[in-house]
């Protein structure tokens, strides 16, 4: 199972203020721990939203509305993410708990989200059968 630990933006990250050395080294240590456990898939930090562009679709079927950053509401903005591959939801939670507070001044927030994957990779015969049935239905709908 894949999970994404989404690190939310803060006033500092949005202002382009680099985290303290202490925090950087704690984060690096944590990433090493993930790698040594064989669960780390990818980890990246994002530039502040001031360089970002937002494409929204206020009118269904209409053209997108293009807005330049920065965007307000830091907590709705993503500052980085860490993608992990684990055996269970509990394991993902455990890893998320071990991530250092990503900002350290009361604004730190990590959101744990499961990555959507087809259930092809299961050992469970029932799930496999359900998946096959679903795909068959989709195929039939396509034909009609």
């Amino acid at each position: 199972m894949r999970f994404m630990m989404v690190v939310k933006a803060t006033t500092d990250s949005e202002a382009g203020v680099m985290p303290s050395l202490e925090l950087l080294s704690a984060m690096q240590k944590y990433n090493e721990e993930l790698a040594k456990a064989g669960v780390l898939l990818a980890a990246d930090g994002l530039h502040p939203s001031s360089g970002g562009i937002r494409f929204s679709y206020p009118e269904p079927g209409g053209k997108p509305k293009v807005t330049d950053g920065p965007f307000t509401e830091a907590k709705e903005i993503i500052a980085g993410y860490t993608l992990i591959e684990v055996k269970s939801r509990e394991e993902a939670i455990e890893w998320a708990l071990r991530m250092p507070d990503p900002h350290g001044f009361g604004q730190g927030e990590i959101e744990l989200r499961q990555v959507f994957e087809a259930e092809d990779l299961t050992d469970d015969p029932e799930a496999l059968a359900n998946e096959a049935a679903l795909r068959k239905r989709v195929e039939e709908q396509k034909r009609t």
């Binding site: 040594k36 456990a37 064989g38 669960v39 780390l40 591959e85 055996k87 990779l121 299961t122 050992d123």
Partner: peptide, 20 residues
């Protein structure tokens, strides 16, 4: 069954650990 994913996952994970 053509694949048994658990073993693939465990092997990949252990391989990643070993490489580290």
């Amino acid at each position: 069954r053509w694949t048994r994913p658990l073993l693939c996952q465990e092997a990949l994970r252990l391989g990643r650990v070993l490489a580290e």
